[in-house]
């Protein structure tokens, strides 16, 4: 049976971690998904956020491009919704600030020049949320993040790298995607100790 492509998981990542990600990979062909690799090794194509919209701005009337800032306890996500996200654009244009929202979106990067990478979120789905949903998201995200920090710490203390490290993580029953991400993150991000604080 032909295996259909599994749906990308919507990762739970705090804004602080997301925004300091500057590793961007795309696998193989043109239509392959692109990923942002975060410091804790999330190979992130899609993410889920519940936060507070603090600012909505129509930055281009011609393209009906809307920008929103969504705050979590650690920082702010930047969201762009344009002509290809009409529902999200309408939603944002009618939104009162501040308000709780839940967003499913794709991780995007913008690299105006070599070395300076800006990451943002392009919404797929957006809806109003409430305080409880936000609190629960913060907890779930903290839980997932702690798990990932644990994996990275294990990985670092193993001293292995590349395929050996992947093998090491697989033996510890760590999910392939996370193991993959951890290897990439450790190769890319220097002074991991500082980031983990």
């Amino acid at each position: 049976m032909e295996k259909i492509v599994d749906r990308e998981v919507a990762w739970r990542v705090f804004a602080h971690e997301f925004n300091r990600s500057n590793l961007y990979i795309s696998e193989g062909s043109e239509r392959a998904p692109n990923y942002i690799v975060t410091p804790t090794g999330v190979k992130c194509n899609r993410l889920f956020i519940v936060g507070v919209v603090t600012e909505v701005e129509n930055i281009s009337h011609d393209n009906n491009l809307w920008k929103a800032r969504i705050a979590d306890p650690t920082g702010v996500f930047t969201l762009y919704a344009g002509q290809y996200q009409p529902e999200a654009a309408i939603f944002l244009s009618e939104l009162k600030v501040p308000s709780y929202v839940a967003v499913v979106g794709k991780a995007r990067k913008y690299e105006p020049e070599e070395g300076s990478v800006y990451v943002s979120v392009r919404p797929e789905e957006i809806n109003t949320a409430d305080e409880k949903q936000r609190d629960r998201w913060v907890l779930d995200t903290a839980e997932r993040t702690l798990e990932r920090i644990g994996i990275i710490e294990d990985a670092l203390s193993s001293g292995a790298s590349g395929n050996d490290l992947k093998e090491f993580l697989r033996k510890k029953n760590i999910n392939t995607v996370l193991a993959d991400g951890a290897v990439l993150a450790i190769e890319h991000y220097r002074n991991m100790d500082k980031i983990l604080d």
Binding site: D6, R7, E8, V9, A10, W11, R12, F48, D140, T141, R144, N175
Partner: peptide
Amino acid sequence: IIDDGTGAL
């Protein structure tokens, strides 16, 4: 689609 941050179905 239901998703708990570890997988989706």
